[in-house]
Amino acid sequence: MIRLGKYRHYKGKEYVVIGEAKHSETLEEVIVYKALYGAEDIWVRPKNMFKDTVIIDGKEILRFEYIGE
Rank of each mutant, 00 (worst) to 15 (best):
V54S: 10
T53M: 12
T53W: 06
F64D: 13
M1E: 03
I42Q: 06
H9N: 09
V32I: 07
V54Q: 09
D52Y: 11
Y10P: 12
I2P: 14
V17H: 00
K6T: 15
Y10W: 15
I42E: 10
Y15M: 06
V17I: 01
K13L: 04
T26P: 11
D57Y: 02
Y10I: 13
L36Q: 02
K13N: 04
G19Q: 10
R8H: 09
E14T: 10
I56Y: 00
I55Y: 14
K11A: 12
A35H: 02
V32W: 04
E29L: 15
E65F: 03
I55D: 12
K11G: 10
E65N: 01
L27Q: 14
Y10V: 13
E14D: 11
I42S: 05
W43L: 04
V17T: 00
E69R: 08
M1P: 01
E25I: 12
E29G: 15
K59Y: 00
V30E: 11
I61V: 06
K6I: 14
I18Y: 03
R63S: 10
L4R: 09
G19R: 05
D41Y: 06
G38F: 03
I31R: 07
T26V: 09
D41F: 04
V44L: 01
V54G: 10
K11D: 13
K13M: 03
I67L: 06
E65K: 07
Y15I: 09
I67Q: 03
V54K: 10
Y7F: 12
D41T: 04
K6H: 14
I61P: 01
K34R: 11
G58D: 04
E29A: 15
D41L: 05
I56V: 10
R45G: 01
Y66M: 03
I31V: 15
P46E: 11
D52S: 15
N48Y: 03
N48S: 04
E40M: 11
K6F: 14
R45P: 02
M49S: 08
K59L: 00
F64H: 13
V16Q: 06
L36S: 00
E29Y: 14
I67C: 03
